[in-house]
Design a protein around this nucleic acid. Structure first.
Length: 507
DNA sequence: TTCCGACAGTGGGGTCGCAAT
DNA sequence: ATTGCGACCCCACTATCGGAA
């Protein structure tokens, strides 16, 4: 199959707004793709590369050769070249990689170049990713989408599942099973503004578990072999020997556990997330680093224990298996209640202990991996500040032509403002239109291709999760997960919060 | 007919490893 | 030694479609 066939379908998908229409276009192509090309086609049309990443980003794609006029590139040819690009390493690799990228793009028409460029950026923007492709695979293979979804949960990679379904139908899908040592798509949580709302969503009584601010881990043990995976199914086993040792000390030799690693201080309170992230992502000198910053692991679910698959069992049954397999000290603190007051006290306690909040879990839901179902609901405290808009950046994609990303500043009592970060979240289309117009009236000072500097006159109420140390911003601090709540036309700039107020929140 | 769950899109800060400077 | 790039940890929110109620 030619690349252009896939590109044409992607363009049709982009033009179609109805999801069922998108599914139809995708399924049509899956119906005529060859068995050796199915994985590549499914991968491209769900917005990812079979290689996952190949070491090519926006900088490498800045200047590219002239496009060809005739579309002759094959899917397998492009895929093979991308694999070669990924394999490049060592001194001189940047120019070698660039040369291969040039070779790749010289063989593509401008239409194809656009497509591959967006794929490499991870921004296909055709309105269809895994969720839509699952339905397309179901339609093209004649299998129920629930079976496709289930196989994806267990296999963790849709192109393999889709190719299997196209070749072998429902039977092939049923052949995908939980394999110890191969990562399962993790179950994700939705969110609620407060504990009462979370209980309502999950159904009371529910289980309330501490939400620890670390890195999600899925730990597999088969005999003396242990593997640890992240939320995106990357293998981080060498970086977390503490988790490996914990698994090996457990009595059961056949385990798949879900949990969180984080760095705790000697007094038991958590380090800032940055400390945990630094430790977990360091691959060099792990032995030394663990002396200075040991990791702790806490498990909250069991997908397999003592040779039994548990994914389809309700929460309470999985918890029985978990508490039977894992030492008490490695269990995530938990309370089962339907009482709102009791739940709120538990929430207050966990926040006082320095942790992130709670995850409220339905007692009956199975391990529904890979989707943010109603089974798990997270609740975190929310801080707010009144800040001043210092500048704004032009948006991309559906925000093209709109000033979107706000630069936020706190008032400096000595005069002026201190930038604390940016945000684009929380804006409705109406607000985007309004602020674009208003910002252009306030434009003043340096303006480049992306950024418009403003007279500091607008006060905006910002919600955020916390203040963290920043090597980037002048005040040495930045807001974590900042989002717009509302503009405050009733407030003058002199009423905005000060740098001191922000600093007092950092601790 | 209305409601709501699931999805895609739009980007945020921080940190690491690696290659180039 | 420092800088730039790519990758990946953490992530919130809105618009939209289409099935459920």
């Amino acid at each position: 199959m030619l690349l252009i066939d896939v590109v044409r379908v992607s363009e049709a998908v982009t033009r179609t707004s109805a999801r069922l229409g998108k599914i139809g276009h995708l399924a049509e192509l899956l119906g005529r793709v060859g068995p050796d090309e199915a994985e590549i086609a499914i991968s491209y049309l769900s917005g990812e590369l079979p290689q996952r990443q190949v070491g090519v980003g926006w900088r490498t794609l800045e200047d590219l050769p002239q496009p060809k006029l005739a579309a002759t590139a094959t899917l397998t040819g492009v895929d093979a070249l991308l694999s070669r690009i990924k394999a490049v390493s060592g001194p001189g690799s940047q120019s070698a990689r660039k040369a291969l990228v040039a070779e790749l793009f010289a063989g593509l028409t401008s239409q194809e170049q656009q497509f591959i460029r967006r794929l490499l950026h991870g921004e296909l923007r055709q309105g269809a990713l895994d969720g839509v492709m699952i339905e397309a695979v179901a339609k093209a293979s004649g299998a129920p989408s629930a079976d496709v979804r289930r196989a994806l949960t267990l296999r963790g990679w849709l192109p393999a599942v889709g190719a299997g379904a196209l070749a072998g139908g429902v039977e092939a899908l049923h052949a995908f099973r939980l394999e110890v040592g191969r990562a399962v798509s993790p179950m994700l949580a939705g969110s609620a503004p407060n504990v009462a709302a979370a209980l309502e969503k999950a159904g009371a009584p529910a289980a309330l578990e501490w939400k620890l601010d670390g890195v999600r881990v899925q730990a597999h043990r088969s005999g003396s072999e242990v593997r640890v995976f992240t939320r995106t199914l990357d293998d981080i086993t060498p970086q977390v020997p503490e988790v490996v040792e914990a698994l090996l000390e457990m009595p059961s030799a056949d385990l798949v556990l879900d949990g969180e690693v984080l760095a705790l201080r000697p007094d038991g309170r958590p380090h800032p997330f940055q400390v945990t992230a630094s430790r977990v992502s360091s691959k060099l000198n792990v032995a030394q680093l663990r002396e200075q910053t040991p990791l702790s692991v806490f498990f909250f679910d069991a997908l397999r224990a003592d040779g039994e698959d548990l994914l389809d069992l309700p929460y309470t049954r999985r918890q029985e298996a978990l508490t039977g397999a894992v030492p008490h000290g490695l269990l995530t603190p938990r309370l089962i209640t339907g009482d709102v007051a009791e739940a709120e006290k538990f929430f207050t306690d966990v926040v006082k202990a320095g942790h992130e909040g709670l995850v409220v879990k339905s007692l009956v839901s199975p391990y529904a991996a890979g989707r943010r179902g109603a089974g798990w609901i997270k609740v975190k405290p929310r801080h707010t500040l009144d800040l001043v808009v210092l500048a704004a950046e032009w948006g991309h994609g559906r925000r093209e032509g709109k000033l979107s990303n706000l630069h936020l500043g706190a008032r400096d009592p000595e005069g002026g403002f201190v930038m604390l970060g940016k945000t684009f979240k929380g804006l409705t289309d109406e607000l985007l239109a309004w602020q674009t117009e208003r910002f252009l009236e306030l434009a003043e000072g340096p303006t480049d291709e992306w950024t418009v500097t403003l007279r500091p006159e607008l006060v905006v109420e910002i919600a955020f999760d916390g203040v963290q140390r920043s090597p980037r911003y002048p005040g040495g601090m930045a807001l974590r997960f900042a989002r717009v709540l509302r503009y405050r036309p009733d407030k003058r700039v002199e009423d905005a919060d000060t740098v001191e107020t922000v600093r007092s929140l950092m601790l």
